[in-house]
Amino acid sequence: MHIVVCIKQVPDSAQIRVHPVTNTIMRQGVPTIINPYDLFAVEEALRLRDRHGGTVTILTMGPPMAEESLRKALTFGADRAVLLTDRFFAGSDTLATSFALATAIKKIGETFEPVDIVFTGKQTIDGDTAQVGPGIAKRLGLNQLTYVSKVSALDLAGRSIDVERRAEGGVQALKTALPCLITMLEGTNEIRRGSLPDALRAARAEIVTWSAKDAGIEDVTRCGLRGSPTVVKRVFAPTPRSEKAKIIEVSQAQLKATPKDQHKTLLPEALI
């Protein structure tokens, strides 16, 4: 069995600040991490491999420094890592991103071994669209399983998989055929601590690095800005409410003095 897990390197959002004057995002010096949602996908793939045998390939598209995230994923025990990096990819929206990733996954299948399952996270913490998974599935004709909370059964001989999927107002238990694409819900498992041998292997591992051409992308106009139907035209700060908030400063002493009638000043009469 061959599983491909897509991960994205993202800025650690907790550390991002906006420039107070220019209203631009200050990325310099902000550490990058593996998109936290993707760790649940990595773990689920490793569990399936541990139980059923096979290999796990990690794939990311990003700048050369995204290699760091791939090494990190290898320390958890993944078998192979592929970095898709090319200046043609810059400015990709989700349509262009899923095109590049889908083409690379096809190439991975041809170069190494056929792919049975593709995993992605539910969404990222930067772009946050949850559109890349469905985009890959559609392009590769994989059976699409989004918001999966549990892989209940996998029958490799029968080429079938059962999952539980978060739906509106309940959970759907679904059965489909391999190959499929799963977007994994957060909080569904706990990422392992990598073993020491895996850490050593990860440090030395050769990362397969592909340009657009290496990945089998012939038409680079389908990548990056040119391949993206969406255009970001304006970035702006939200306007403050025209009326200022009515500010009530309450000191510690006041708090203690008038507990009984506190709510009168603080909350609307209509409610009381």
Binding site: P11, I125, P229, V232, F236, A237, P238
Partner: peptide, 13 residues
């Protein structure tokens, strides 16, 4: 948009 206190307007022209 991510991280900061910003909004962005996106078009499919």
């Amino acid at each position: 948009t991510f991280g900061g206190s910003l909004l962005c307007t996106i078009y499919t022209l």
